[in-house]
Simulated scan of single mutants.
Amino acid sequence: MKARSDELQVFISVIECGSISAAAEQVGQTPSAISRTLSRLEAKLETTLINRTTRRMDLTEEGKFFLERARLILAQMEELEERLSLRQQTPAGRLRINAASPFMLHSVVPYVAEFRERYPDIQLELNSNDLIIDLLEQSTDVAIRIGALADSTLHARSLGSSPLNILASPAYLKKHGTPGSVEALAEHVLLGFTQTETLNHWPLRHAEGDRLFIQPAIAASSGETLRQLALAGEGIVCLSHFMTHEDIRLGRLNIILPDANTGYRQPINAVYYRNSQLALRIQCFLDFIQQKMAGYAV
């Protein structure tokens, strides 16, 4: 006889709650029932998962191995159930989305009409914030975060990645000339960020490494502000492709120093708390945005 999903859930609940009694309260069973389920699971697997005493519980090495894979199995089962449900139901309700202003303006807003036509029963609430927010405090269902994720209890889904390009307007280049090397950037007006130092490390190979730290002549807190400054011919900027692909396609901004670019791509992730009542709305939105991003990926 093989282990069942309910037994996996009991095992995970005991570990996450820290005791059999707490797990019993969480899953709505008696402590004795939880204890019997653990014993039955260990008997099926023919191994000890948890060393239990009157004072503490410790995972065995086999238990640690099993815990990691049990969590993965249950997550895959939950995702499968959600996707099957999605095929049978019409997503509805309010969906609160938070993203940095550039992503909201260039990767969400242009597609809102199409999304609403496809999912008319979802009411969108779009909020922009260039800082990392607390999803619970801000009553947010899903947040889009650009760059590497910090450790978090949130669930994350990759939406793809976006290369960083060094850009300038034709007007700026006509007036100041096109830099022929990374070192030549020192003679130009550089546009950068005020708050996050890592955003002022440009992905350029040079004599001292593969990242160039710049001291901006003009600094701004928002990538969209920097984009507007670059479009106005105020200097050279490093921005992500997701917010500048149309400018590049239409010739409003030119890519410079492409041969020196390391090809670094910014990760783009959606983070959210898993909740079955929200899963349909979240899943629809993330599938939709991921599809749109793939359309202009390079």
Rank of each mutant, 00 (worst) to 15 (best):
D6Q: 09
F288H: 08
I146D: 12
A75V: 00
A279W: 06
D259N: 15
S158C: 04
C17M: 04
T60V: 05
L185C: 05
L41V: 04
W202M: 00
L135I: 01
I166C: 10
R265A: 05
F193A: 04
L280T: 05
I248C: 03
L212V: 04
A33C: 12
R205V: 10
I218H: 04
A230L: 12
L80V: 15
L185P: 07
L126D: 05
G93K: 07
P102G: 03
Q88S: 08
W202G: 04
P120C: 06
G28M: 06
L226D: 01
R249I: 15
S240F: 10
Q123E: 11
Q138W: 15
N275Q: 06
C238D: 02
E114P: 07
E46D: 01
E224G: 11
L278K: 08
D259E: 12
G180N: 10
A148Q: 15
K175D: 09
L199M: 10
S128T: 08
Y119R: 08
S101I: 11
I20L: 01
R252F: 07
F11D: 00
F242K: 10
R96H: 14
P102A: 03
L45E: 00
T53H: 09
R71K: 08
G209E: 05
V271Q: 01
V27I: 06
Q26I: 10
V109N: 07
N98G: 14
A92W: 13
G180A: 11
E208K: 15
I12R: 01
L167W: 11
L159Y: 03
A33M: 09
L199A: 09
A297Q: 08
I289H: 07
